[in-house]
Design a protein around this nucleic acid. Sequence first.
DNA 1: CCTAATCCCTATTGACTAGATAGAGATTTA
DNA 2: TAAATCTCTATCTAGTCAATAGGGATTAGG
Lengths: 144, 144
Amino acid sequence: MISQKARYALRALLYLAARGDSAPVQISEIAESEKIPRKFLEAILLELKKTGIVRSHRGRAGGYALGRPAKDISFADVLRVTDGPLALSPCVSVMAYRKCDDCFEESICAIRKALLAARDATAEILESRNLATAAQQLRRSGAL
Amino acid sequence: MISQKARYALRALLYLAARGDSAPVQISEIAESEKIPRKFLEAILLELKKTGIVRSHRGRAGGYALGRPAKDISFADVLRVTDGPLALSPCVSVMAYRKCDDCFEESICAIRKALLAARDATAEILESRNLATAAQQLRRSGAL
DNA sequence: CCTAATCCCTATTGACTAGATAGAGATTTA
DNA sequence: TAAATCTCTATCTAGTCAATAGGGATTAGG
C-alpha cells in the first residue's frame, strides 16, 4: 500500500498540473482545496522540491509550481520520493539496489526472479502514467 | 517492500516444495536449514495453516507439509497472507476492496486509474509464479 | 499408560515509522 | 519595514515489525 504522504503528494501535484499556468500557488490554497493538513503538506512539498519535482518562490507572492512539464513527472517519480523504491525487495530495485541481508546466492534465488518480474511490470505502468495524462483524464471526466 | 515475514514464509515453503515428499517436516528442521528464528517461524506457519497453504500434524512425529500441490500455491497467495493485499490502495484491491477514507468520487479518480493498472500488472505476475515453478528453477540452477 | 516430542496459543518487548503538529527562522515584495 | 510566504528543527502519539517467552494441547511410541 502507498502511504498517506504519497496520496497527498499526488493530489497536490495533480492540483498544480490541473491549474496549468506556471504562477506559484500557495501551500494554504492547495491544502484547503485538497483537504490536506497544512503543516504536513509543507513537509511533503519540501521533499518534492529537493528532487526537482516542484520549485518554490519565497516571500510575499511566493508559492509552489511544478518543477518541469507535467508530462515529465511520472507516478513512479512521485512514489519514489514519498515511499522509496517501487521494488518489493532491495535486490530487485533499479534505482536503489542493495543486497538482501541474508541472501546466499542472488543469481539463483527463485524468490528474486519472481520479485524482479513484478518490479518490472509495476515500473512499466507507473513510469508511463504521468501528471499530464492524469489531468487529461480528469478533464474528460468533467471534473475540471 | 515485502516484509521479513514474507521472506521467511517463502523460504520455508520453498523448502517444503523442494523436498517433494509429503511427509511432515518439523519446524526446527526448517528453521535450521533456512536460518529462520524458530519461534517466529512457528507463528508464520500457523498463519499459513489457517489459510490452507500448509497443513500440520501434532504430536510426536508431527510437522508441516504443503496444504496443496506446489503448483497451486502462488507467490500472490503467500504474500496476501503475510503482507496483506497486493494492491497499492484499498480501492483497487480485488481480494480486500475498501473505499479510500477521503475519496470524493472513485469513478473519476485519476490516481486510482494508475494504481489499478499497477495492481493488475503485479497480480498477473505474482499469480503466475508458484512454488513448483520456483523449485524447478532452483533445480535447473543446480541448487538442489 | 505415560512420557517425550511436537504443534498451538497468548502475551510481551524494543526499535522503528507514519502521520501530524508546533514554533520559530529566513526570504521576498509591496 | 511589515506582511506574507516558504524553510527548518523538534516533538508527540499510535501503531507496526521482528523477535522472544512460556506455557497448553495433542499424539506417537515404549
